[in-house]
Each structure stands twice: as C-alpha cells, then as structure tokens.
Write a protein that binds this DNA or RNA. Structure first.
Lengths: 222, 222
DNA sequence: GCCTCCTTCCCCTAAAAGAGGGATTTTTTA
DNA sequence: TAAAAAATCCCTCTTTTAGGGGAAGGAGGC
C-alpha cells in the first residue's frame, strides 16, 4: 500500500474559522467506545466519523477514508495498537494518533510515541483532558502531559507499572481479604503482602487501602 | 414523537419454535444502554429493537410500535420510570416491563412491581441474571428473585436502602479519609462515623472497608 | 559481571478499623 | 400522635493497617 496524500477535510460547518475535527475511535470495548463518543459529543467542533473494534476493521476504514484524529486502544484483539499506529501514520502522515490506555499499561505509551502517536489519554480521562489533547494535536502539538504528570506523582524509582504480583495482591485486597488471608492464599508471609500493599499505596499515591481500591477500580487496574 | 430506532423487521428467525424476544432499553446513561445492548447481543433468541434515553421518547416509540420486553430505568430525566411503567402496561398489556435499578434504589422496586413490572435487574447484572430474567418473563413468570436474595442478605431490620448520611460517609471513605477526618468534615464525633461505617459494612454484607469501597463503586452507589 | 527490579521477609511504633455491646436524641412517617 | 427510622455518641477489646526502616536472594537486561 502506498502512502497517500491527506484527503481534503470534510465540509462540516461548526464555526466560522474552524472545521470540525473528525475523530475515529478504535477500542474493542463497546463501553469505552460509547463512553468516549458520548464525551466527544459534548465538545464543540468535534465529530466522531466512525469507530472500529479490531485492528483489521480500523485499517479497513483507512484504506478509503481518513480522519483528523484516531483514538487508538493499545490492546486490540487481533493486532497490537502499536503496529496499527505505525501503519496508520505511514499511510496517513497528517493523521494524529492518540493512544488510549489504562493506568496499568502506561509503559506502552513510549512505544506508541515511537510508533508515531501524538499523545495519549487514559480511558477514564475527563472531558477537560480529552479536549486539551484534541486541541493540542489540532495545533500540531503533542499531548504527553498526562504521562509526565503521572510520572511525577509516582515514587519508588520512577516505576510506572504495577508488577504482576502487585496487581494480584491488589485484586485480593479489593475482595476484602486481609494481609494474612492473602498470604495464606499465595503461600507467602503476611509481611510480604504488607510490603506489596505499602508499595501499591505508595505507587498510586493514595492515603490508605480504601482509596487504593477506589483508584484501582476507577483506573481499571483491576 | 416518532419512533427513532426500530431497525429490525418483526420476523427475525432464530430457532425453529422461537421468535426472537424483542427488547427495548430505556436508560438515560449511554454507558448502561450500550453495556446492556452488548450483553443482550450475547444471548441467542434476543434482539434489541430500540432504545430511549427519556420517558418521552420511550412513550413515543410505543405509540406505533411495541416490543416483548422493556428494560426500564427507574430514574429518567423527564418522568419517573414508575409512571412510564404504568402507562406502558396500560397501553400494551402483553408487554413485560423489567425495572433497571442501582443497588441504592432497591426500595423503589416494590413500586415498580405495583406499577405492573414483571421483574427487575440491577444495572450491573451478570449475563446469567439477564438471561434468567428474560426467560422468566418469556414464560409468563416474574423475576423478583434477586430482590428476595438481596433482602435476605441484608441485616438490620431489613433495611434495603442506604441512608443519605451513610452514602455521604461512604463517599468520604472511598476518598481515603479516616473516621476522624470525616468526623471533622461533618462536625460530628469519630464514633458516629465509625457507626456509619459499621452499618455500611453490615448492610452491604462485606468484610471490611476495602470490599465496601469496591462494592459501592461496582454497584454505582457512589 | 554488574546493576536494576521483583519478590520475599523482618523490625518497630502508632493509628485505625473491626466486632461486640448499648444508649440518646432527632426526624420521618404511618 | 405514636411508632419507626435515622443520626448521634459512648464503651471495651482485638486485629489490622500505616508508615518508617532494612535486607537478602533471584531473574533478566546491558
């Protein structure tokens, strides 16, 4: 497939000087797609031109169509979002790809950046954050602020990612198990679970276990 | 108002002896509608014939159309789901109305029952529960099992509903505040907050604060 | 082979929560 | 208005967390 020129922008009227930004959403979770679509509907000068739940159907769309911005999930059922991103920016150099990610996948955003993405948004981003990201890419800027903020808020050797064990422990904590009960389940000492709990509280910058569970659920870590 | 989304012809075949059960969804949260639609798509013999986000557009649909089952939110922006239920069963006696509710609105389901509903589902119901409810109403049975189960699991004088104060305290707990901090905020003693916390744990039948926060978030109580 | 990260485990103290009670006052509702 | 429910507060006692600290072994990357 040859790289092709960016097609003419659509003639969607919104305001005098602005064309509507056409957004294409790619995520395999209907909840995320519809949630995002709903958020975008509340932003003036923006329209959703389509969505796809697989890499294949996304790339299929972009064979004959284009958009201004693609909100692209990193985890797709058939292919990595990173590969999809590479393909898209190769074929549509003017296309702005914004990665969609969960809190626990933040390590992948660097690879998305290398793959040509112009920014990223957490799946539970606020309307404000979405708006800022779209304004940034519309002005040919990038939007990685959230990542940096996130990084700054994290202690412990700049660890961005929860470890497998930590997530495992976190799930049991949210179930209501005590350190000792989790320890029995995982055949380790209660001290170990306590360490994991403390690291989780530290990494996610929360005050206690209650807030830890809330943050974990709201960021879809568990 | 004209029907807005009826797309499928009435004669959709699925199996030899069964017509597809036609479901109409009424909820003002797109997330709930799409989530429910997605769940229903996974059930054979069921099709979504449309949805509405307001009482008005719902009643508008049923002026010239009908369905087999209506999944009806109790809280609608323009009118109570209870009133909508009464109107629907009056105009379409064969229509099975299943109430959609959150955990903290369980007291209303009795009024939905009086209004002619044939069952209820929590908004975070599992695929199994949805399937059972649909099978029940298809067989002219009612589906209130969940309510009874719920009732059985609740202690303290069969209280089904969290009080305003309890929900208020619950929100602060999920924010990560301690009893003392919440007490300072609400100008009461820490003992009071402790009582509320204990009542919450008792009412929601969870082991500790971590599970309380999880349950509260998953049931959209906060 | 070094270094980082993960996992594991331990120490300490103080604070908070969990599990029983019980009790009073205000507010709602039947 | 009387009963029911909600909100308030207190007690004791035990267990669990929070927040410091440190440290050792192993796996994997460079």
């Amino acid at each position: 497939m040859l790289p092709q020129e960016r097609t003419e922008p659509p003639f969607t009227f919104t305001y005098l000087n602005n064309m509507a930004q056409r957004i294409f959403i790619v995520d395999d979770h209907p909840m995320v797609v519809e949630g995002m679509r709903h958020m975008l509907q509340q932003i003036t000068g923006v329209e959703v031109c389509g969505h796809a739940s697989t890499a294949r159907s996304c790339l299929g769309y972009f064979v004959k169509n284009t958009a201004d911005v693609v909100l692209l999930d990193i985890n797709l059922p058939d292919q990595s979002g990173i590969e999809v991103c590479k393909t898209l920016v190769l074929q549509h150099p003017a296309l702005k790809v914004i990665a969609l990610t969960n809190f626990d996948q933040l390590t992948y955003i660097q690879r998305m950046q290398e793959a040509g993405a112009k920014g990223y948004l957490l799946k539970n981003a606020s309307l404000d954050e979405i708006e800022h990201a779209l304004q940034a890419v519309a002005g040919n800027q990038e939007y990685w602020l959230g990542r940096d903020n996130q990084r700054d808020t994290l202690k412990d050797h700049n660890q961005l990612l929860l470890t497998r064990r930590e997530i495992e422990v976190l799930k049991w904590i949210a179930e209501g198990l005590t350190n000792q009960e989790i320890a029995d389940k995982l055949f380790v000492s209660a001290s170990t679970i306590d360490s994991h709990r403390k690291n989780l509280i530290s990494k996610l910058q929360v005050k206690n276990t209650a807030a830890l569970v809330r943050t974990a659920l709201e960021n879809k870590i568990i």
